[in-house]
Design a binder for these strands. Structure first.
Length: 377
DNA sequence: GAGCAATTGCCATTGAATTC
DNA sequence: GAATTCAATGGCAATTGCTC
């Protein structure tokens, strides 16, 4: 038993340090009065009670099984951040824990393996914008995104490829992240983003997933010049994916009357494609439908900016606390008897008392299920 | 078996020493 | 200087042994 105590202590130390917490921080979170107690636990000199173990698991973003497992835990998957957020380690641990839970729910529901996310092995040093355009066209065709891709993209990646999408507050200056692990592909989005920016960021992260195996994340992190280039590619990819050339030029050309076009038409097209007006204008510049002078004049015109802003508030969208698909999977696993009601509440990060209210928010009702006989051939 | 006192072991607290 | 560890001390709950 002594050995198990030491293993548990060592594991707590490792996980605490990976989250950049001190013994004093952990003592405060756990609810013990002094860091000396944490020191004793980490050295295997003090027993850990069952309720304490559960608290350690929650605070260290892991499971009691992992804390007690004799086998060495596998290294955590890399997370590719757009911009490193505050408390990166905590956010990374939360994100990866959600991804694992998501995957566990998929398995509990016997969900068959998904189609593989299209992969592109790209040499970022040699690639050019023509390659990125072709890649966006290919991905758009593979995923069958159609003429208005933004409306389809997230749903298609979730349902068809099992990409896990999670929303979290990542600060006001905007960030997002992507990762690939044993749980599959996952994207972390900033819950503070407006709809049009969100779509763009999402498409940006899709680029990182598609090219995930082109270069190791730590290589990208340590080569600033290369990273900047890849980020420009990702932005351009997002632009091409969400604003496909033919449908966009068609939408643009049909609004031209006597060689001119109204400000409201630009705004309408941007809303139609669910992107910002800036993104639209730069894409039209790229497609040679506008000149650099036109774009600068529009973006510098306060009247255009006012008209644009006045239509934004109506389109504001705030994501649900938990992904709807994740809630649905947890609920179905519960209804099938694969998880208890208490575990369902834990997955949904709520209490048993508030569980029904939370389910109702997602349009789910904990009524007794019924069966009908069907003919099966 | 119930009640009580003595014993034991674990834990929290405090202050000081050591390590990083 | 902050974080961590060590050692001493007291409190509390569980256990043990005894008496009725």
């Amino acid at each position: 038993m002594e050995n198990l105590r030491k293993i548990l202590g060592r594991r707590i130390t490792e996980m605490r340090k990976s989250l950049k917490l001190t013994q004093a921080d952990l003592a405060k979170e756990i609810g013990v009065s002094s860091p000396q107690i944490i020191s004793q636990i980490e050295q295997g000199k003090r027993e850990v009670g069952a309720w304490e173990l559960a608290k350690f698991a929650k605070i260290l973003r892991t499971t009691t099984n992992t804390l007690l497992d004799i086998a060495e835990p596998k290294p955590l998957p890399e997370v590719l951040w757009r911009r490193i957020p505050e408390q990166e380690e905590i956010k990374k641990a939360d994100f990866l824990k959600h991804c694992q839970e998501y995957h566990d729910l998929e398995r509990l529901n016997d969900i068959a393996p998904y189609e593989n996310v299209p992969r592109e092995k790209m040499d970022f040093n040699k690639a050019d914008y023509q390659d990125i355009t072709q890649l966006a066209e290919r991905i758009s065709r593979d995923i069958s995104l159609g003429a208005r891709p933004a409306a389809m993209l997230e749903r298609a990646l979730e349902d068809r490829y099992g990409v896990k999408v999670w929303y979290m507050y990542l600060g006001k200056d905007g960030s997002a992240a992507s990762t690939v692990g044993t749980f599959g592909y996952a994207i972390l989005m900033n819950s503070m983003e407006a709809l049009w920016r969100r779509n763009y960021n999402f498409a940006h992260e899709v680029f990182h997933l598609v090219t995930w195996y082109s270069e190791k994340p730590d290589v990208l992190r340590n080569d600033e010049q290369l990273w900047q280039k890849v980020e420009r590619f990702a932005e351009f990819f997002a632009s091409c994916l969400l604003l496909p050339g033919d449908p966009l030029t068609l939408a643009f050309d049909k609004r031209i009357k006597k060689s001119s076009i109204n400000y409201t038409d630009f705004i309408e097209i941007a809303r139609e494609f669910d992107v910002s007006t800036e993104a639209l204008l730069y894409r039209l510049l790229n497609l040679r439908r506008l000149t650099r002078k036109d774009v600068d004049r529009l973006l510098g015109d306060p009247q255009f900016r006012d008209m644009d802003r006045s239509t934004m508030s109506k389109s504001w969208w705030s994501p649900p606390e938990l992904p709807e698909r994740f809630v649905r999977l947890a609920f179905i696993a519960y209804k099938k008897g694969r998880i208890t009601r208490a575990r369902l509440a834990r997955y949904l990060n709520t209490s048993l008392f508030d569980l029904d209210d939370l389910l109702k928010e997602y349009g789910l009702n904990d009524r007794e299920d019924c069966k009908i006989k069907v003919r099966y051939t």
